[in-house]
């Protein structure tokens, strides 16, 4: 057992864990934060996406002990106690989900993605690598979100929701 001090959604939690426990299992099984989902447990689906210091990662391939002291944000932290996050509302308005299993991961991933895009990071479909800030076209959104699979195939609604939210944020 090792003592792991996690910081999740702004609160500190100290857990005694065997080092093989993933961050995903620590969140779900020890902290009761079941918003983060387990799809493949192999890094291949994105359902387990959370933010670590604002960067999106797959919590299924992260050992909890390796993320001690990092600022972890899950969908519960993004939603907050109030009416929820505007990106959640955009998903609902645009039919960005059917069963909803992939949705927490999609939303955490989209928030991380918009921060990456805002910082000028290119993607595999960015035509000019050195140009400042590639425009967030639908092709860019699809490529940058390709780490999140949706077995229901709600992709069109997901892209619509992200585009709508990003445009509203840009106007603020």
């Amino acid at each position: 057992m090792v003592e792991v001090r996690l910081r999740v959604n702004g609160a500190d939690a100290s857990l005694d864990l065997p080092p093989q426990v993933s961050l995903l299992d620590a969140l779900r099984e020890r902290l009761g934060l079941t918003g983060t989902k387990k799809g493949c447990d192999q890094g291949a689906c994105g359902a387990c996406t959370v933010l670590a210091d604002g960067e999106r990662i797959n919590s299924c391939l992260a050992l909890a002990v390796q993320y001690a002291g990092r600022e972890i944000t899950t969908i519960e932290g993004i939603a907050g106690d109030g009416p929820g996050h505007p990106l959640q509302a955009a998903f609902v308005r645009n039919d960005g989900l059917q069963c909803g299993y992939c949705t927490s991961g999609q939303i955490c991933s989209a928030i991380g993605m918009l921060a990456e895009h805002g910082a000028g990071m290119p993607s595999a479909v960015t035509e000019h690598l050195c140009a400042d800030g590639a425009e967030l076209t639908d092709d860019e959104i699809r490529e940058r979100m390709s780490g999140n699979l949706c077995r229901c195939g709600a992709y069109n609604g997901i892209v619509d929701a992200i585009r709508e939210f990003a445009a509203a944020e840009a106007e603020r």
């Binding site: 391939l61 992260a62 595999a124 690598l129 390709s146």
Partner: peptide, 21 residues
Amino acid sequence: ARYPVLSQAVLAGASAQLRNM
């Protein structure tokens, strides 16, 4: 700027989440 093939190759691999890790 100097080794664009390397940027492109890395961006063509895995997913954004995995590349962050």
